[in-house]
Amino acid sequence: MSAPVASRKRVALVIGAGSVKCAAALGLWKVLKREGIAVDMVVGCSGGSLYAAAMALGYDAEETEAMTLSMWNRDVTKRRDYGSMLGAFLPKLFRFRGHFGMVHGEPLLAALRKGFGDKTFADTVLPLYVVATELATGQQATLAGGKVVDAVRASIAIPYIWEPWEVEGKLMLDGCLSAPLPVDVAIKEGADVILAMGFESPYPRRIRSATSYAFHVNSIYTNNLFRANYSFHNLAHHAEIIPIVPDFGEPVNLFDTHKFGHVIACGARAAEEQLPYLRQLLAEPVAKPSSPGVGSAVR
């Protein structure tokens, strides 16, 4: 029996790690909506998972912007997790639990709950995949079931900053550690055209605290991983990966939420630049499949 031929190309939107910069995806989202370009799945990692989840849950760009403005501010990092740090640095006096975070996770969780409540992956209007990293094995984990809050919390568990988060009995860390721009998930799930919005992590000009040192070291690892993965995915994909790389023209740091408007506009501009090609590409006929099915989602 021959495989059914898809009537149009399947489009995936992949939003990589990048904290506030990930809001650029809202600019891209607005352009796609305006042009009536259907997206068949969204994939998010770390900061990108916030926006991927909001899009998949059917929030529009304005709602998502308001939501992230209300949840992503300095309050989420103000409270230090002294219990965790004492366990890490004085393990004989205070029990070390095998992991630690310098920032208390409760305000972050409260912020995420404000945005996503008890919504689950079953509530999404688009297939959603959130990428995290298993602490025990280092394996990339693609989360596609359960509570959205849990998946996003796991995906943004920046090492040393926040404690890992347990999902399905496994402790998970930031998806950035295994897949800073998880194009592979879209390839595996059968996307033809992949809109890849990714960001390399900035390096601080000066390292003035343990936290900024931790961020800096993380950035070194993840930027190198970003390039290595992106290179492989470009060569591995049968169809097209369109990089949407906004030029912000200025540094955008972790809590520069006052730059949301600028970031979103830059995302929209980057999307506009690719629009003529994207339209042409989507107008081309779908290639006849030469091999049987690709991976399917477990939801």
Binding site: H233, N234, H237, E240, I242, P243, E273, Y277
Partner: peptide
Amino acid sequence: SYTSSAGLRALL
């Protein structure tokens, strides 16, 4: 002014 994954594959 632009290259995508297909372009990269051609170059490689």
